[in-house]
C-alpha cells in the first residue's frame, strides 16, 4: 500500500493511500466537526463544518473530501477556522427552527460548542409534512439540507425514494415528488432517520405518547429477532416499553444498517395478544387460565401417560429456530435426557 506523509497540527502522520484528511485526523485523535459526513456514504463536502487550512491554498478545504497527498501541511484549528465554523452553525440554525427532540441533535451540540445561542437569522419557510406512514416522521423545519438522507437512500439502499427538490431559499428534501413515504419506492428501512444529524427525520413510534428523547431511554444492545443476518441493534426502553430501535455505525454485522422489520416491527412485544398466563384445555374443549403448578403437572401427566403407554418414541419435540441457542439446547436435552427420545427437530433443516 502506498503511503503518504502529512503534517497535521504540527504532527507528522503516515497515512494510507486514499485516506482523506478527515480519516487521517480521526486516526490521530484530532477532532474535526462534521455534519454532512457519514462514514458509510461517499464524501460530500456540503456542510463546510470540516474546513481546514491547507498550506499553499488560499481558502480552507473540506477535510472530508480532500485526499491526503505526500507533503501536505494542514491545520485543523485556530481562530479563523473557529470563526468560520461558528458562522456555519449560525447559518444552518437559521433553517433549523423546529425540533421534535426525539433524536440526538448534532447541530444543537455544535451550537453549544461554538457559542451560538440565538441565530442571527430565522427562516420559517417550509410547511409541515404530514405523512400517513407510521414509522418515519419528517419535520422539514429541522432539516439543514445536508442530504445525508437522500444520499443514504441513493448510495446504500439504492432506492432513490428521497429527493433534494427546489433551489435556493425554496430548496427542500422530500419523498420523491412530494408523495407519501408509502407511495414511493421507499422500503421503510429508516436508514434516512438513522443518518439524519438534526432529527428532521425521526422515529414516529417514539412520539406516540409524547416525544421521548434518546436520553430518557435505557439502551440494551442485542441481536435482531428476524432473519439470519443477525444485525446488532439497541432496544431503547422507557417505563418497561420499547420506544424505538436504533443501531450504531461500526458495530456488528450490519454497521448501523437495519431493515424495516428490524427497526420498526417491535409492536408485537407489547401486543395485547401476548400470552400472559398458562392455559389448560378444559372438558368444554376451551382453553382456560391456570397456575404454573397446574400447567406443569398437566404437562408431566400428559407426556408421562403417552410415554408409559406407547414408549418414549411416541413423543415428538419441535423447536423454533427463533429461540436462543440455550433454549434449543435445553429443549433437545429435554427430549433426549428427560423424555428418552431423539425425536427432536425444527423447520431449521432448510
Amino acid at each position: 500500500m502506498t503511503e503518504a506523509r502529512i503534517t497535521l497540527d504540527g504532527r507528522t502522520l503516515e497515512v494510507a493511500e486514499g485516506d482523506t484528511l478527515l480519516d487521517a485526523a480521526r486516526a490521530a485523535g484530532i477532532e474535526i466537526p462534521t455534519l454532512c459526513h457519514d462514514d458509510r456514504l461517499d464524501p460530500f463536502g456540503g456542510c463546510r463544518m470540516c474546513l481546514v487550512d491547507l498550506e499553499g491554498t488560499r481558502r480552507p478545504v473540506p477535510a472530508c473530501k480532500t485526499t491526503c497527498a505526500d507533503g501536505m501541511v494542514v491545520n485543523c484549528g485556530g481562530e479563523r477556522l473557529q470563526r468560520v465554523r461558528r458562522t456555519m452553525v449560525d447559518m444552518l440554525l437559521a433553517d433549523h427552527y423546529q425540533d421534535v427532540a426525539v433524536k440526538d441533535n448534532e447541530l444543537e451540540r455544535y451550537a453549544v460548542e461554538y457559542g451560538v445561542e440565538q441565530p442571527s437569522l430565522r427562516f420559517d419557510r417550509r410547511g409541515a409534512y404530514d405523512d400517513r406512514n407510521r414509522f418515519i416522521g419528517f419535520n422539514p423545519g429541522a432539516c439543514i439540507l445536508c442530504d445525508r438522507c437522500v444520499r443514504y437512500c441513493d448510495e446504500v439502499m439504492q432506492c432513490t425514494a428521497l429527493e433534494h427538490a427546489g433551489q435556493g431559499g425554496n430548496a427542500l428534501v422530500q419523498p420523491t415528488q412530494g408523495k407519501s413515504f408509502l407511495d414511493t419506492t421507499c422500503e421503510l428501512c429508516g436508514g434516512c432517520v438513522s443518518t439524519c444529524p438534526t432529527g428532521a427525520l425521526y422515529e414516529k413510534q417514539a412520539t406516540r405518547n409524547g416525544a421521548v428523547t434518546e436520553q430518557e431511554c435505557a439502551k440494551t444492545s442485542t441481536i435482531c429477532t428476524y432473519c439470519g443476518v443477525g444485525c446488532s441493534l439497541d432496544l431503547n426502553v422507557k417505563d418497561g416499553r420499547v420506544i424505538k430501535v436504533t443501531a450504531e455505525t461500526g458495530v456488528g454485522a450490519n454497521d448501523g444498517h437495519l431493515c424495516n422489520k428490524g427497526r420498526f416491527a417491535f409492536d408485537f412485544i407489547h401486543h395485547p395478544d401476548r400470552l400472559t398466563e398458562p392455559l389448560l384445555r378444559g372438558d368444554d374443549g376451551e382453553l382456560h387460565p391456570a397456575s404454573w403448578e397446574e400447567a406443569l403437572a398437566r404437562v408431566a401427566d400428559g407426556l408421562g401417560a403417552v410415554k408409559q403407554q406407547h414408549g418414549p418414541d411416541a413423543l415428538a419435540f419441535l423447536a423454533s429456530s427463533r429461540c436462543t441457542n440455550e433454549d434449543v439446547y435445553l429443549l433437545q436435552k429435554l427430549a433426549r435426557a428427560a423424555a428418552g427420545t431423539n425425536n427432536v427437530h425444527s423447520c431449521a433443516a432448510t
Binding site: T222, T225, G230, L275, P278, D327
Partner: peptide
C-alpha cells in the same frame, strides 16, 4: 392441551448464531 406463556427475544439473555456462523 396445555399452553405455556413464553418470552420473546427482548425478554431474555442468550445467544443467536447468524448466517456467517457468528455466535452473538
Amino acid at each position: 392441551d396445555v399452553v405455556l406463556p413464553a418470552s420473546c427475544f427482548a425478554e431474555k439473555d442468550g445467544t443467536f448464531t447468524n448466517s456467517e456462523r457468528r455466535v452473538q
